[in-house]
Amino acid sequence: MSYIFLYALVGMGLFTLGLYALIIHAHLLRKILAINIMGSGVFLVLVALAARTEGAAPDPVPHAMVITGIVVAVSATALALALMLRVRSETGRAELDEEPLSKFDD
C-alpha cells in the first residue's frame, strides 16, 4: 500500500465535505463552490490512483479524463454563475426558494 492511496482518500474526503456544504448552505455561490469541491475530489481520486504502480509511468488515460472533466466543470460553473446572477436580478437574492411550489398557486 503506497502513499498514493492517501491522495485518493483526501479526494474522497473532499467529495464528502463538498456534499455536506452543498446541502447545508443556502447561498447559491456557496452551493456552486461546493459542487466544484466535490468535482475536485473526484478528479483527485482519478489522478492519484493512476500512479499506483511503483516505478512505472502513470497511466495517461485518467489524466486525459480529468482534463476533459475540468473543461466540463468550467463550462457548468460558468452557466451556473450566470444563472445565479439572473436569479438574483429576478428575485433579489441568490438563494433557492424554500417552498418552491407555493408560488405556483398565486
Binding site: 474522497m12 490512483l49 499506483r52 504502480t53
Partner: peptide
C-alpha cells in the same frame, strides 16, 4: 455523511495495490 465517507474510504483501500490501467 461520515458513514458514506467510511464506505468510500473502504472502497479505495480495497482496490488492487498496483494496476497498470491502460498505460
Amino acid at each position: 455523511l461520515t458513514v458514506m465517507a467510511v464506505g468510500l474510504a473502504y472502497a479505495v483501500l480495497s482496490l488492487p495495490a498496483q494496476a497498470p490501467g491502460l498505460s
